[in-house]
Amino acid sequence: MTKPFGAGDTVYVIYRNPHAANVAHIKEAEIVHHPYHEGELSLFLYETYHPLAEDDAVFSTYEEAEALYSELFDEDRYH
């Protein structure tokens, strides 16, 4: 994560498709209080609560997420 976030923050995440490991997208998500784990924050993405971890690729702006996405997945770098 690039900075500490709080409940109610809108963020952008680089999300890998669990069914296709080589597919990733930038998605908008919200930081929320986890409804089943009191005191924990989570990402609300695709109508699901995802535990919020320190090593998640979570960004304040789409542009920040896009910069890392381009660095990691830009196919032109490898040709």
Rank of each mutant, 00 (worst) to 15 (best):
H37R: 13
H33F: 07
N17M: 08
L52A: 05
H34W: 02
A67V: 11
L41D: 05
P18E: 05
G39Q: 02
S60A: 13
L41Q: 05
L41N: 05
I31C: 01
A57L: 09
P18A: 05
E40N: 13
T48H: 10
E63F: 09
H33Q: 05
D55Q: 10
H37C: 15
A65H: 02
V32W: 12
S42R: 00
I26P: 01
H33C: 05
V58D: 00
V32K: 09
H25V: 15
P51I: 10
I26K: 01
D56L: 10
N22H: 13
A29S: 08
V32M: 08
V32H: 13
Y46M: 14
E28V: 11
A29L: 07
S60P: 12
H50N: 07
S42M: 07
S42E: 07
V32L: 04
Y36C: 09
H34V: 02
H19L: 15
A20R: 14
I31D: 00
V58P: 04
Y36N: 11
P51H: 07
Y62K: 04
E40R: 15
H37K: 15
Y69Q: 03
N22D: 10
R16E: 08
E38L: 07
A57F: 13
H19V: 11
V32D: 02
P51L: 06
A65T: 03
E66Y: 11
L68D: 06
N22Q: 08
T48V: 06
R16V: 06
H33S: 07
I26D: 00
E66G: 04
L43S: 04
A24F: 15
E40Y: 10
F59N: 00
F59G: 03
L41T: 04
L45W: 03
E30Q: 08
L45K: 03
Y49G: 06
L68H: 06
N17F: 08
H33N: 14
N17E: 12
N22Y: 14
P51D: 10
E63P: 12
T48K: 08
L45R: 00
A53M: 13
H25E: 13
A20E: 10
F44I: 05
E40A: 14
A53V: 06
V58W: 04
F44W: 11
Y69R: 00
P51R: 09
A67L: 11
A20T: 09
E54Q: 12
V32Y: 07
A65G: 01
Y15S: 15
V23F: 14
L52C: 05
L52N: 01
A65E: 03
E40D: 06
D56R: 06
A65Q: 05
H50E: 04
F59W: 08
L41S: 02
H25Y: 13
S42D: 05
L68Q: 01
Y46V: 09
H19P: 06
H50I: 11
H37E: 12
E38H: 11
A67I: 13
L68E: 06
S42N: 04
T48L: 12
A67C: 08
P51W: 13
Y46C: 13
E28Q: 14
V58A: 00
I26M: 06
E38K: 09
P35R: 02
E54G: 10
Y49N: 01
A67T: 14
A29C: 06
L43P: 00
G39H: 04
S60E: 12
H33T: 12
H37Q: 15
E66D: 14
K27D: 07
Y15V: 02
T61E: 11
R16M: 02
